[in-house]
Amino acid sequence: MSIWEYANPKKFSATVTPIIPWAFALGLGGLAVGLIWGFFFTPDDYRQGATVKIIYLHVPSAFLAINAWLMMLVTSLIWVVRRHHVSALAAKAAAPVGVVMTVMALATGAIWGQPIWGTWWAWDPRLTSFLILFLFYLGYIALWEAIPDPDTAADLTSILCIVGSVFALLSRYAAVYWAQGLHQPASLSLDAEENVADVFWQPLVLCMVAFGILFVALVLLRTRTEIAKRRIAALEARARRSEVRV
């Protein structure tokens, strides 16, 4: 029994079909609990007032925006090395979800920045990096859409994802060098002495877990859709071939 068994599209679809509704239920339920907890039952921050409640949306979406790209990088590498179709399709399925997460992080950030920093947008390293990440997502999706042959598209987008990761990292450091930041350092990290206070921390972690589960559910669902699309194309191609033979 190894994880590579699930590289078989049929086995993958059969396995995830019962998981998907549960994952959605768990993700949406967790999100509802986390957001209600955060929205109704946490105090206001003494400096930022009620705007601190935006953290329950901003931090998880930013976290996932980056991790969605990392997931695409890993699945792209698996496709390049082992050529499992499910892996390439999972990368394709994750990209639009990553875009939504990036937009959500940018939008909530802008709405949060307006009252606190007095501006919707600043050319701050973190903000700029996210904008660049957004452009990388757009290019990646556009390349998938542009190439008709599925295997060629999977190959080319994988290489773009790998090369893009290097440049995204480089851009991140370039942006740090280029601008001094308004943005506070990471809200959650394991080694920081001072993290966000516990009252905010608990619902925040719940929200992050819920976002994560929801992301997994969306990617599984979209991957299954892509597999089914691929199967339709294959069956139609076979039908056309047999027609020609008759």
């Binding site: 007032g49 009620a50 705007t51 409640k53 949306l57 939008a107 909530t108 709405i111 307006q114």
Partner: peptide, 14 residues
């Protein structure tokens, strides 16, 4: 408080 609009807008957008 004074932040009702941004907070609600952020939740609505997300």
């Amino acid at each position: 408080g004074p932040y009702a609009v941004p907070v609600l807008a952020a939740y609505a957008v997300s």
